[in-house]
């Protein structure tokens, strides 16, 4: 019961947050999440290569045309493959990527817990 209340409270606060979340620098957010494919190890936002400059222009253009963040990602994924996105997202390719560390955390917790439970017996 207490847990439920706590959970609801968290949910409310998070929603409250979403209202306040800004969209001002959306193009910055998007370009920071794109790999500059020709510079290796830099985001499009951080790079000044020709490719990155064009991509920045394109993202601005698309945003002005009313595309959403998701649509832009899908568009670029279609052109360049998932490789261009720094945030791999949660898909069939990345289940293990996201879940394995969490699993490790849980296993670690279980091992520590076991140390104490053994002690009682």
């Amino acid at each position: 019961m207490r847990f439920l209340k706590f959970f609801i409270l968290i949910l409310i606060i998070f929603n409250f947050n979403l209202v306040h979340a800004k969209t001002k620098n959306l193009d910055e957010k998007i370009t920071k999440n794109l790999r500059c494919l020709i510079c290796q190890g830099q985001s499009v936002h951080d790079s000044d290569s020709e490719f990155a400059i064009s991509l920045k222009t394109l993202v601005k253009k698309k945003l002005n045309e009313g595309s959403s963040e998701e649509e832009i990602y899908n568009y670029l994924k279609d052109k360049y493959g998932e490789w261009i996105l720094y945030d791999p997202g949660f898909s069939k390719n990345t289940y293990f990527l996201w879940l394995l560390p969490i699993l490790m955390f849980l296993i670690g917790g279980a091992i520590i817990l076991k140390l104490f439970i053994y002690k009682k017996n």
Partner: peptide
């Protein structure tokens, strides 16, 4: 350079 991106060029 945006049309080149349409083509998926580098």
């Amino acid at each position: 350079g945006t049309i080149a991106i349409e083509w998926g060029a580098y």
